[in-house]
Design a protein around this nucleic acid. Sequence first.
DNA 1: TTGTAAGCGTTATCAC
DNA 2: GTGATAACGCTTACAA
Lengths: 339, 339
Amino acid sequence: MREQVTGRRRAATLADVAASAGVSASTASRALNGRGELSAATRAAVLEAAERLDFQPSPLARSLRTRQTYTVGFVVPDVASPFYAASLKGAQGALEAAGYRVMLMDSDQSIEGEVAALRTLANHQVDGLLVATAGVERTRFDQAVGGADTPCVFLDNVLDGAGVGAVMLENAAGMTLLVDHLREHGHTRIALLAGPQQETSGRERLQSFVAAERSEELVRVCAWTQAAGRGATLALLALERPPTAVIASSVELALGCLAACREQGVSLPDELALVTFDDPDFGALLEPPLTAVGYDPREVGRAAAVLLVEAMQDHGKGRREVRVPITLVRRRSCGCGAR
Amino acid sequence: MREQVTGRRRAATLADVAASAGVSASTASRALNGRGELSAATRAAVLEAAERLDFQPSPLARSLRTRQTYTVGFVVPDVASPFYAASLKGAQGALEAAGYRVMLMDSDQSIEGEVAALRTLANHQVDGLLVATAGVERTRFDQAVGGADTPCVFLDNVLDGAGVGAVMLENAAGMTLLVDHLREHGHTRIALLAGPQQETSGRERLQSFVAAERSEELVRVCAWTQAAGRGATLALLALERPPTAVIASSVELALGCLAACREQGVSLPDELALVTFDDPDFGALLEPPLTAVGYDPREVGRAAAVLLVEAMQDHGKGRREVRVPITLVRRRSCGCGAR
DNA sequence: TTGTAAGCGTTATCAC
DNA sequence: GTGATAACGCTTACAA
């Protein structure tokens, strides 16, 4: 009743609620958390007081006491990348729905950055971790999170058998779809613009390609950049027997390929067919419209969050892996509907 | 010395350090924080003990006591959008460098979502707020953050004169650049695909356009989507006297315009010139390559973070506004180098 | 059913 | 200079 003097009264505390309801703090706590048995009358009184004072329990104090922060750390190599941004969105939605907050860290593609991020997060006692690793080794990872039992789910770029789960795309199926489609168009000399081999996606896509083609002759490993894709394509085009089709392992690579072709005046899809992993929303507006393997990037974040929440709630169950489905979207760059 | 029995020893606490150094907790605290005068010897002993035990102060306990969390809330309508994702990256970098963590909330373009986010954040006692508002009114905003004095910097979409600062793009200059360039190409019937008028960018861009053209005849207000851009363009094209050039207020709108033109078989830039705000990294690969006003989206996040950090550190200084510069990048869609 | 008291890991105010 | 001691706001044995 006091404290109404000025406009800015400090936020109500549990003690205030208790006092106002005429009970002890512990009783108030129990009433609010629905723990223990207590008379309907007191419970109601407490609830009413809490409502009236607009009581908001302090997460800080609660966490300090319970050792639960209801906060999840999200670590990615680069939030500005469309894929990670979308994953983040998916994860954030699912986590929030489950009552968790997300603390974001960007490792900036560096192992040092990732380790620092993990340490900070562990320090903050996050309840769980969602990480797209930049490539730490297992031991450094464990060390960074403090050998803690903090459950961790990896996404996209996975650390071997670590963590309580992992979410990846159906890389193998996607690559197979791409290769098969090109074959249906009659191609026999297919090149691959592959991604970095330290990364799960880069590795899996290349592996499936090689499994299908039984040759590495036309494989070119690139960084995930437009420039790398352009360079590799230029080299491919200069070959004595150039490929008649190329598969890009990501949009950036495909864009680079497109740029190279434009420079060299090779027309798609007549002189060279192009298909790619990742279906950007401007895919249909490129010239030619891009045939691609598409998927919902948010889904990988969401799925990872779901896995993590389960792990945080009931320990056990063991490690789980989920694959986010992909689909082939046919446009013109592969030769479909061409001529 | 004890506790080494098993691999998992709980993290060292200040008390452990103090004990190990043979001093009291308060002394240890002072040594670690460099507060108060104490003998060089004790300080060294404490530091050594802390190092040896790999002591990491608990942010939770510290925050509870000091009422400072070193955490900043970041609220955006949609993290998956390239612009916000980039802003986030910029902000995150600057904040981390200044010792702050970022807690991310996505309002999902809804006012309700934003209010909920703000409440949660206020509840967590964040030291500051970075928000691209979805459009709350001033009173609800103040109420949500609890009438608190938590400094807030707005970005992109700004709440009138609220908060300690705001960061926006040079919308007026950008629009002027676009209009002038089109005029140089001889255009006199220029249309504008405008953005939502509840949003700062949408509003400012439209205003500058009208200021330059002195007419709203060819202005079409759209949502920030490809579909809206397409629809509006179709309508424009069907006019008795259609425009000879169009300015899109964002990439999505430009993409929609492109799609509409393709459908109708109108060739760019001959039959219609197109220029746009936002220079996507695939801008050069579209057909025709897009002339656009570009800027560094990360910079808006970074600038906002800088403003916020200053506000959090020394209260005062008053409200400040910064504008992130833009530049015109000429490609073919405007008519440059055409024919 | 409810209250008392201890404690989570810090920092701040006092004495000594 | 350094050490008790009391918060910060909450939960949870343990008593009553």
